[in-house]
Design a protein around this nucleic acid. Structure first.
Lengths: 154, 154
DNA sequence: CAACATGGTTGTATAATACAACTATGTTTG
DNA sequence: CAAACATAGTTGTATTATACAACCATGTTG
């Protein structure tokens, strides 16, 4: 009986290991696109989608500490891809916007990503694609929900 | 036509983002088990499975740089969970083995993990479980294969 | 207005990670 | 067999991602 569970969990562990590897690959490989890292691209993309974005929103999207958010944004400002304006309605808040250079780079990196994504896509059997993507959503959400209430060994 | 592709890729990006988040959660949460981090547990588990393991093998399993492998192993040696013996047949090589304390901790952390995995499991509809796990394998492998040949923007 | 809440940055510290240089041991080959 | 090459691992050095706590400035509310 415990065996059954254990086996299942062995699978899960393997999957976590796989995800951890794959995440690492992506961060590294994508780093070679126009000098933008994976996280940096996420930020550019989030800003591109919303036109303007507060740090607070961003920190939810990235789901990292707000201090981390600041540090991730800083290099993008320095490279001139983002502007950090004050929000009109709340003087505490920041409003991130893409510079034209930022838009440019965002587009270029998308092209890189597309080529990578296509390669990934080609390694998934056509008739499975939909199912696979859906399954992963289910899985990721399952973990997020579990993590929300999770606090181990306390 | 490009739209179709783009949309698909938007999905993929979302998934990568999700994976990156989820990976981060796990590293953090699991860190609370007996002071063992996710990677450290992977190492303990790999050694436990094989009884003994060379650094070379381990560095393949973790798929990180060999120097990183060394640094990940070191704290486990220091905590007395692993022993670093010389291999008999090759004096260059190392043979990692679990100490009894290591076995003990390995087991304890498994219990923590089980409880987490069960929570995850409970958030996946029963009739989908098999499908979801299989899909993720397909996906992870697809990425690994793509990453193997991947070198962007060159 | 005083107390509390929110948005953000900075100080400080740590973990994970890479790459290059190096040591020591093995293997192959002219 | 000695020289050249290959392999196993560690260490030096640097960077990135990350957290937590302390802090400042601005808003909101009793």
């Amino acid at each position: 009986m415990l065996n059954k569970i254990d086996e299942n969990c062995g699978d899960l562990l393997e999957i976590f290991v796989g995800m951890s590897q794959v995440t690492r690959y992506c961060r590294q490989d994508i780093a070679f696109c126009e000098g933008v890292t994976f996280h940096q691209f996420m930020i550019l993309d989030a800003v591109a989608k919303k036109k303007e974005l507060s740090m607070a929103d961003l920190h939810v999207i990235l789901s990292v500490e707000k201090s981390t958010t600041t540090r991730l944004v800083t290099p993008l400002i320095q490279k001139g891809l983002l502007r950090r304006d004050r929000a009109e309605n709340d003087l505490r808040a920041v409003k991130l916007v893409l510079t034209s250079e930022g838009k440019n780079i965002h587009k270029k990196v998308w092209v890189c990503l597309l080529s990578f994504f296509n390669k990934v896509s080609r390694n998934i059997p056509k008739n499975q694609k939909d199912n696979v993507l859906k399954s992963i959503h289910i899985f990721i959400n399952a973990i997020k929900e579990a993590a929300a209430e999770y606090s181990c060994c306390k």
